[in-house]
Amino acid sequence: MKKKISLLAIAFLFLFASATQAAPAKNQGNIRVYLDNQEIKFQAAPIMKNGVTFVQFRPLFQALDYKVNWNSGNKQVTGTYLDQKLQMTIGRKTAYVNGAKTTLQIAPFTQGGNTLVPLRFVAEATGLPVKWDSKSRTIKIDREGAIDNATDEVKKLYHAIEEAGNAKKLDAVMSAFHPKSPVFAEIQENYQNQFKNDLHVSADVWEVTVAGTSIHAYTSVTLERTSGPFAWDATLHYENLLKKDASGAWKIYDLSHYETEYLVGDELLEAHPEVPEAEQKAIVATIDTQSKGFNDENGPLLMSVIHPESAFHEMFRTSIAEGIFDEVNFNLKSVELRTVFFQGEDAVVYAEETDDADGEIIHSTSLYWLKKTEGKWLIYDVLELE
C-alpha cells in the first residue's frame, strides 16, 4: 500500500507541475499590434523571443507605408519610404538604417515559412515610438503622436519664416534651412529677390508625415504686395524634407516648388489708375506689336517687344527657331486693352483678345505685365485668367 501511495503521489505531483508550467503559455494569449487605433493583421501571430517581439515583415512595412523588397538570394529584407531605407538579413544581427550599421539584439529569422523581424527596431527606425502593455499584451505604435510633434516643428519653422520674411531679415529666414541643404544657395537667392519688393508673407502647413530621420511636409507661402514695385500676389506650394542639423534642431533640408497659385482680386481688375496719354499709347502699341509679330510670322518683330529677363524671351526664341510659324497660324485681335496698374516702370494691362486663324474664334482674357526698359515698354509676363 505504501508503494502505491508513493506512486500515486508522484503521478499527482507530475500532473500538478505540468499544469503549473503550461498555465503561463495558456494565459498569455496572442500579442496584438496596433498602429494608432488600427490593428495590424498578421497571417502568423507575433512571437515573443527573449523579450523581443517579432512579426511578419511585409504586413508591418506596408502598414507603415514602406515599400517592401525581399531578396531571396541573400535573404535580405528592405523597406524604403521617401529618403529612408531599412535593411535586415535573416540570421544576422547586423542591420542598416540609411546605410548606417546597427546591431540587433536578436537576428531576424524564419518560422513556418514566415520571415519575422523585430517590431520595436523597425518602428523606432521609422521614427515612431512603441509602447508595450503587458496586461493586455498589446503593442501600440504611436504614429499620430509622432506626426503631431513633427507638425509642431514644421509650424515653428514656417512661423519663423513668416516673421523674418515680413521683416526682410535674410539671415533669420535662412536659419530655418539646413546648412547642408542642396538648395541652400538657390533659396537664399530667391529670398534676396523677394526682399526687393514689399510683400506680406503668410504660411500654412499640412500633410506632415514622419519618416525615420526625416519629416516630410507640404506647405504653402502666400506673398501679397503691400507697396513698392509691382509683383503678382501668389501662393507658392512646396514639398519639404526636414532633417536635424548638428545641434539636433529640425531644419528644412530640401524644398521643391511644385505649383504657383496666382491671386487676382477685384481690386486689381477694377482699378482705373491715371496713365499719361503718351504712356498709354506706348503700352498699347507694345501689345499690338506682339500681335502683329505673331500674325505676320515675324520673329524679330515679336522678340523686339519681349523683355530680355522675361521667361517668355527664351521660350519664344526657341519656338521661333524650331519653326512654330510653320506649324501654327495666328490672327490675334485685341477686343479690350485697359491699364489696371501703373506705377514707375511697371504697368499691368487687362486684355481681352480673340484668335480666329483656323476658322474657330478663340477668346482669351489675360493680364499683361510690362516693364519700361531704356524708355521702351516691354512685355515681362502674361497671366492668363480663367
Rank of each mutant, 00 (worst) to 15 (best):
L8I: 14
A9M: 06
F12S: 13
S18P: 09
A25R: 14
K26L: 12
G29R: 15
V33Y: 00
Y34C: 05
L35S: 06
L35I: 08
G51D: 07
T53F: 06
F57Y: 03
Q62S: 10
A63Q: 03
K67G: 13
N71P: 13
G73W: 15
N74E: 05
Q76Y: 09
Q76K: 08
T80C: 06
L82A: 14
Q84V: 11
G91S: 07
A107E: 01
A107Y: 02
Q111E: 11
R120H: 08
V122M: 06
G127A: 07
D133K: 09
D133P: 05
S134K: 11
S136I: 09
R137Q: 05
T138I: 09
K140L: 15
A146N: 01
A146F: 04
D148G: 12
T151R: 01
D152N: 14
G165F: 01
M174T: 00
M174P: 08
S181P: 00
S181M: 05
P182H: 09
V183I: 08
V183C: 04
Q188W: 07
Q188S: 14
N190E: 08
N197L: 15
S202V: 08
A203W: 02
V205Y: 04
V205A: 03
W206P: 10
A211G: 14
S214M: 10
H216R: 15
Y218L: 12
V221H: 08
T226H: 08
G228T: 03
A231M: 01
W232A: 00
T235H: 02
L236A: 12
Y238P: 09
E239V: 10
E239Y: 06
G248D: 05
A249T: 08
I252D: 00
Y253K: 01
H257A: 14
Y258L: 09
Y262W: 13
E267M: 11
E267A: 11
A271P: 05
A271H: 04
V275N: 09
A278S: 12
E279F: 05
I287D: 00
P300C: 12
S310Y: 04
S310G: 06
M315Y: 10
R317F: 13
D326R: 09
N329W: 14
F330N: 03
N331Y: 13
S334Y: 12
T339C: 03
Q343V: 06
G344K: 10
A347P: 06
A351Q: 03
E353Y: 12
E360G: 08
H363A: 12
